[in-house]
């Protein structure tokens, strides 16, 4: 397998990846992880080792990097302040830049581009809201779509055909 010795530096440069190299492999992250308890595919200590060893393609192309539930149990307990939840975000950010993205995340981005929120509130919902004494919710002004453009996420993840009319 081809190794990429610079991989750990690339992760360390991403937001949240800074403390990666402080890991001394005690394994409290793995022991605390609710995902690991159910599915052995996801193993925080192992993921850090893979990054430090330079197994770039194996990590970025994997299914397991998308399994973090972001519960922060590892981050709170890590004696070295590695902030593994943020390290996972750094790994996923890099994966997206390199063209790997889980379809569920691509779908969320697609929804946010269209509606600015994860759920569209249409007239039907608004009528229900009013019936229950809640204020009407205005349509979004397309800020999120513009912001996704600013950061260049459009270039990272190609727009889907059906986004065009929005």
């Amino acid at each position: 397998m081809k190794l990429s010795p610079r991989f750990k530096y690339e992760i360390a440069k991403e937001f949240g990846g800074e403390n990666l190299k402080l890991c001394f492999a005690c394994g409290i992250c793995t022991a605390s992880c609710p995902i690991r308890e159910i599915d052995e595919k996801y193993n925080p200590r192992r993921i850090i080792r893979m990054v430090l060893l330079g197994m770039k393609q194996r990590v970025l192309n994997s299914d397991f990097i998308w399994l973090c539930s972001s519960c922060y149990a590892c981050t709170e307990r890590c004696p070295q302040g590695v902030r593994f939840t943020e390290v996972m975000n750094a790994i996923k950010n890099l994966a997206v830049k390199e063209g790997y993205i889980h379809p569920a995340f691509a779908q969320q981005l697609h929804i946010l581009r269209q509606f600015g929120r994860l759920y569209e509130i249409d007239e039907f919902d608004n009528n229900k809201r009013i019936a229950f004494g809640l204020p009407k919710v205005e349509k979004t002004k397309g800020f999120t779509k513009k912001i996704i453009e600013i950061a260049g996420l459009n270039n990272i993840i190609p727009r889907r055909e059906d986004d065009k009319n929005v």
Binding site: E14, F15, G16, C68, S70, M88, N89, K92, N93, V96, I101, F105, Q108, L109, L112, G116, R117, L118, P135, V137, E138, T140, K141, F143, T144, I147, I148, I150, A151, L153, I156, I157
Partner: peptide, 27 residues
């Protein structure tokens, strides 16, 4: 006071692109 111009806080985007998350939350 209802913030009628609120949009997604950025949470789902944080793991995809930190900068976008930052701008979404900041707005």
């Amino acid at each position: 006071i209802d913030l009628f111009d609120f949009e997604c806080c950025g949470f789902p985007i944080k793991s995809m692109n930190y900068e976008t998350f930052l701008v979404m939350a900041a707005r």
